[in-house]
Amino acid sequence: MQWTGLTLSIGMAVAAGLVGCFALMRRMALASDAMSHVALPGIGLALVFHFHPVLGGLAALFAGTLLVWGLERQTRSSTETVIGVVFSLALALGSMLATGDELVDALLGAPGTLGGWELALGLAGAAAVVAFVLTQRNRLVITLVSADIARTSGIRVARLELLFLLAFALTVALGLRYLGVLLMGSLVIIPAATAKHLARTLDQMFAISVGVAVTSTLAGELLASRLHRATGPVIISIAAGMFLVALVVRRGR
């Protein structure tokens, strides 16, 4: 494995661990999985028209983000159904655009080799997500507890939620090459869910979530190249294993 790929995967995992804490607390566990699927038609179009697949995925993700944001501002109850339908449709359309090995790579992840500008853009994206979560954490916490308290504290709630969803979409895009469309949503949620079981404070939750995300990504990449398997499934198996251990540990407390 190249050091460039390694660096980017660490950046991606840190971003996923942090964004995941707020995604989980916002009860986006299922929506985040579905949302990551929306990248596939973008990747498919990128393959058809010969531009970079991650850029196509990112564009599709941003479009999906605006859709979720718009829906959340309407009614809450129907949002989940619409997300389920629209994002399954995205998966179906994307699978028709991409075929064969390309499809398998897009679905399950394949690290491949990284160009210099890909690394630079990826690291910049990861840094932007991490900086967003760390600088806006207080506003995010208040909004999470009560949007009305946030409003009276001078927080522009709708704008903050849009920025959070965009950070989420960017994180998913960063992980596409390692985990693929099917599993990237899980790397956002599983480490945060593990942390929720073990942590007692918010700082602990951030630390554990980032720890689980980075550990499972690095271990998964190493193991996948040894076993000649797609990286995504191996990374998620390791993360899910850590989640199950956390459940047992908490029971034992």
């Binding site: 607390m25 916490v141 208040i142 929720k196 404070t201």
Partner: peptide, 8 residues
């Protein structure tokens, strides 16, 4: 959630 009174 692991959010303490002090966190908030």
């Amino acid at each position: 959630l692991p959010v303490t009174g002090r966190d908030f």
